[in-house]
Design a protein around this nucleic acid. Structure first.
Lengths: 368, 368
DNA sequence: TCCGCTTGAGAAAACCTTTTCCCAAACGGT
DNA sequence: ACCGTTTGGGAAAAGGTTTTCTCAAGCGGA
């Protein structure tokens, strides 16, 4: 193939050789400028227009010419400059990921999901951690806009709070994932009610009947969503729902809640299972039960929420929990954003993605 | 000010007005194209060259002209197109952050630090999660190169492992933070030996003398680094060092280690404090001690490593721990990369950044 | 009045790629 | 031999900004 090319005299071999030698000579590695299309065209003995068309499969030319140009580009290690492409196409193949939860763990799988969905479409993701700082958020948004991102995924640590910046008039599409969307925007969240339902129904399936619910602070919307679903399922099954115990998202509160639930005399008044608002509470609950000599899951079953593996697997016994599928949520958000960027109208409003029950050992086995 | 401008007749007010009206009319928000320098120049009645110089503080012109152009730009909401600027300047003000630890927690504060150091220099960060997938890593690196990032920060979940991609011949600078650097490259890691030293010396200061060390798997380099420092400090103080107990990075191993340390009869053979290789081990140790009726910190002091707040603060009592200052590490990495990008030669080799002792309650108080 | 210098501002090239014409040569048909 | 069509490929504009060069006007001095 190469031989044919050279013998035809079209490949400017001298250009190619000089280039490669000079590259090898260049001691300071950083100084080596990338190969441009112009250089490829020169080496192949064609115009840049033809070179461009050859590499993009556009235009008309002999198969031989096309292949020769391709080979030259390959040999030279040509890679098109995305900046120039973006300038022309008015698409940067770049999106921004705005979050105020850099240290937390909700945005992490979510971010991975977004990035994962976009990378093989050639789209890169700008990471923007804004903490809760308005100024910082503004700074990041402006930087992204200036860099001509095609769109923005907004995410946060709470479903019921806005990011500290207004993204509603941005002239680029925005998708909200796991954070409060602006009205009329596209939002993706986990189906917390569905998740809670999964937990309670699992207990019912296992033959438990006296189901308690211990959750986080009343200031969180999800606390009420999950508590509502808890009550609904029990009502649907003709069972009495105890008033949910609201406290904090901590192990310590799990301990306290156990005291509240199990201090009353009369074992028959005790719940036979506890659905917890997150895994830390569940961990506290399980530890407190063990300290009281109450066996998990034999005497009392426990299910957590979030499926934070490092906690769920360290719990004794390992914790059954609800997984919000945040990576999928992120992937969906990335794809939704992409289709918005492509001009496809997306249904505004909040879409809820299903949760998943991850069974370990803390919820017990089905009755024999 | 505006009045003066208009009265001078230089501000093409009609252009400005039409622009603003048409903007307001444009219903589909996404269709509104950004204002270009050309438009600013036209509205101000000057050439693009003059407009550019006015906004950048370059060139010579009357103060009045400069101010008029600036005002026009402000009014029109002009923001320079970074893509065009980057193309010309051969600097994209963009760096890549490569990590294989998206779900872990080491890279998180580190990422935040990098981003934090760069954002107010106008540099944005591409987040690239490569898991441990060679193909994915290659994909990400090529995408970054194509987008003409100015440099790359490589980070990972282990100091003693390479990322699944070779970054050593990249023609852009690379800084390694909390991952194994290529030979001759710039690397930043935490000073694990120093951190271990802080912990052991704290115990000594508190009057403890029988110091045990429980750490992670022998396959981790940091395990040996920390164990070495542990031995060194004890030797320097003329105290016998027990052989470190190596196991896993888990709570369960913390439990097992306590059994090994405290099962032997004879209280005088027991350690009076335990330095743990990470916070999860420490958590396990503390729980196991409590279950044996051994009081922390009164009978046995415990210090962890990593200062993973959510664990350290949930431990009973709250855990004293070594913080690796990962956010600072990230900041330093960002700044180092920037100075490399600016052409400043940086000393190659691994720079170790100090750790910090975070005192909570598990290590006890000084002897009275 | 003429010359040289300063001042203020514009024209044009450059960055790199894509795309729309456009043109010359070759070719088939009569 | 002539005409119309296809084929293969090139010239040039476009995208938005920066920078260098150029140039005209104005001004002071002789």
């Amino acid at each position: 193939m190469l031989q044919a090319v050279v013998s035809k005299g079209f490949l400017n071999w001298e250009v190619l050789r000089r280039k490669m030698v000079s590259d090898a000579e260049l001691a300071p590695v950083f100084a080596k400028p990338p190969v441009t299309l112009r250089e490829v065209a020169a080496a192949a003995g064609v115009s840049v227009a033809t070179a461009s068309k050859a590499l993009n499969g556009q235009g008309r030319m002999t198969a031989e010419t096309r292949e020769r140009i391709r080979e030259t580009a390959r040999l030279l290690g040509f890679r098109p400059n995305n900046l120039a492409q973006s300038l022309l196409r008015k698409r940067s193949f770049t999106v921004g990921l705005l979050t105020n939860d850099t240290y937390g763990r909700f945005s992490l799988p979510l971010m991975a999901g977004v990035s994962d969905a976009l990378v093989d479409k050639g789209v890169s993701v700008f990471l923007c951690n804004v903490e809760d700082d308005q100024r910082l958020a503004q700074l990041h948004v402006e930087a992204m806009l200036d860099k001509r991102v095609d769109g923005i995924v907004a995410t946060g640590k709470r479903i019921d709070r806005h990011l500290p910046v207004d993204l509603s008039n941005l002239r680029i599409p925005v998708v909200y994932a796991f954070t409060q969307p602006d009205p009329g925007a596209v939002g993706l969240v986990s189906d917390d009610a569905g998740g809670a339902r999964l937990a309670v129904e699992q207990f019912l399936r296992l033959g438990r009947r006296r189901i308690a619910h211990v959750s986080g602070p009343a200031s969180f919307a999800v606390v009420h969503t999950r508590a509502g679903a808890y009550r609904d399922v029990l009502r649907e099954n003709g069972l009495p729902a105890a008033e949910p115990l609201l406290g904090a998202w901590s192990e310590a509160w799990g301990h306290d809640a156990v005291a509240k639930l199990f201090d009353k005399a009369g074992r028959e008044g005790w719940p036979d299972c506890v659905f917890c608002g997150n895994d830390q509470i569940a961990r506290g609950v399980i530890d407190a039960l063990r300290e009281r000599g109450i066996r998990v899951p034999d005497d009392v079953g426990v299910i957590g929420f979030d499926n934070w593996e490092i906690v769920a697997e360290a719990t004794r016994p390992p914790l059954t929990s609800i997984d919000m599928n945040l990576a999928s949520l992120g992937r969906e958000a990335g794809l939704a954003l992409l289709s918005l960027v492509d001009g496809q109208p997306a249904a505004p409003g909040i879409r809820k993605l299903p949760c998943r029950l991850v069974v370990r050992q803390s919820c017990g086995s089905p009755p024999q």
